[in-house]
Simulated assay, not measured.
Amino acid sequence: MNYAEFDSDQNFVSSIVGKFIAPNREWIHMSRMLLDFEFIVMTKGTLYIAENNKKYELHEGEWMLCCPPCHQYGYKTSLCEFYWFHFSYNDNQNDPIIYNDNTKPHLPFDIGSKKFVLPKYGKVPSLDRILILMKQLLDCDRRYRNINLNSCYINLILNELYSQLYLTETDISKDQGNDQLYTDILDYVSWRIHDNLKVNEIADHLGFNAKYITTFFKHRSGLPIKQYIMREKMNLAKARLSESDTPVGVIAMELGFSDSQGFSNTFRKFTGQSPSAYRNTYGLNREYHV
């Protein structure tokens, strides 16, 4: 895995921004020489994209940072949707420091540092927060066509992702032991997030008893595991409500709820709004951007 180090004091200059919706199942990403940075956040489907000879497969909720110069192309048809923006860095020098797993610095940087590091690709921890910022960026671009404002949003989005990846983890990682078990729990919850997942199922899968998993997770993360599972479900629900016209009842079933009323009550408890009110507030009309 490669990592790019940026400095917030350097210039981030917005080029173009948008949301892409594949017109049909036969669409494949164009082949081109990429001469500036591109940031992609997947909202639906799978994107099959390559840089030089390296192939990537991006799924819903994942991001990719494409670094210039490179030959970028699709290697397989992709029925998908994603937000994207292009930008240049450091007065068009486009010269962030690049690390690999063996050379990357200890993260996060000290408080007050203007530097931040992003991996090449990965899963967005809090997708709804990134999507809200991406929508605000698109809205500002449509309303004002102000490159300076767009550039500020790009800096903000990249720093938000860095904060999600490293600063939140620092806050909740009070116990540095048993990292593998903690990661295994998170991975299993992510894998089963569409089911009505029970703690004893997690424990059985990992070979522990439910009481130990409950105590361990609360100590490790600061959250009860049931609350964490429900929070992740609500994050997905917010993304689905703002990104699609899927009926509330269908979203409820997709997230393992037996009825839409129970889902609506839980959603209101976590967000202070009903699902319909949230969609009216944060949903944007979907448009094609090429």
Rank of each mutant, 00 (worst) to 15 (best):
N2G: 02
Y3D: 08
Y3W: 15
F6G: 01
F6T: 01
S8T: 10
S8D: 11
Q10D: 15
V13N: 10
S15C: 11
S15D: 14
I16Y: 09
K19P: 07
F20L: 15
A22T: 15
P23A: 03
N24F: 07
L35Q: 12
E38V: 11
F39N: 05
T43I: 09
I49P: 04
I49E: 01
A50Q: 00
K54D: 07
Y56V: 00
E57I: 01
E57A: 02
G61P: 02
W63T: 11
M64I: 14
M64W: 02
C66S: 15
C67V: 15
P68K: 01
P68N: 07
Q72N: 14
G74N: 05
L79P: 00
C80S: 08
F82I: 03
F85K: 01
F85H: 02
H86G: 00
Y89C: 06
D91A: 05
P96F: 09
I98D: 04
Y99N: 13
N100H: 09
N100P: 12
D101H: 07
D101S: 12
N102I: 08
K104I: 15
P105F: 08
H106W: 08
H106R: 15
I111P: 13
G112A: 07
K114D: 07
K115I: 03
K115E: 08
F116V: 00
K123N: 06
S126I: 13
L127S: 10
D128K: 07
L131P: 05
L133V: 00
L133S: 10
L133Y: 09
M134E: 04
M134L: 15
L138I: 10
D139P: 00
R142Q: 11
R145V: 04
L149A: 08
L149T: 04
S151K: 09
I154E: 12
I157C: 07
L158F: 03
N159W: 11
E160V: 04
L161I: 09
Q164P: 06
Y166W: 07
T168H: 11
E169T: 09
T170S: 13
I172A: 08
I172Q: 10
S173L: 14
D175N: 15
D175T: 14
G177N: 14
G177R: 14
D179R: 14
D179G: 15
Q180P: 04
Q180A: 07
H194S: 15
H194W: 08
H194C: 12
L197D: 03
K198M: 13
K198S: 08
V199R: 00
E201T: 00
I202Y: 05
D204P: 02
H205R: 08
H205D: 05
F208L: 06
T215H: 11
F216T: 03
F216A: 00
F217W: 11
K218D: 05
H219S: 13
S221P: 03
S221E: 00
S221M: 06
S221N: 02
P224T: 00
Y228Q: 04
M230Y: 07
R231T: 05
R231Q: 12
R231K: 12
E232R: 03
E232I: 05
L236S: 12
L236N: 15
K238A: 14
L241K: 00
E243H: 01
S244M: 01
T246Y: 01
A252C: 05
G256D: 02
G256V: 02
F257T: 03
D259F: 04
S260N: 06
Q261G: 04
Q261N: 14
G262T: 06
N265V: 12
F267V: 03
K269Y: 10
K269M: 06
K269A: 13
K269Q: 13
T271S: 02
R279Q: 05
G283Y: 04
V290C: 13
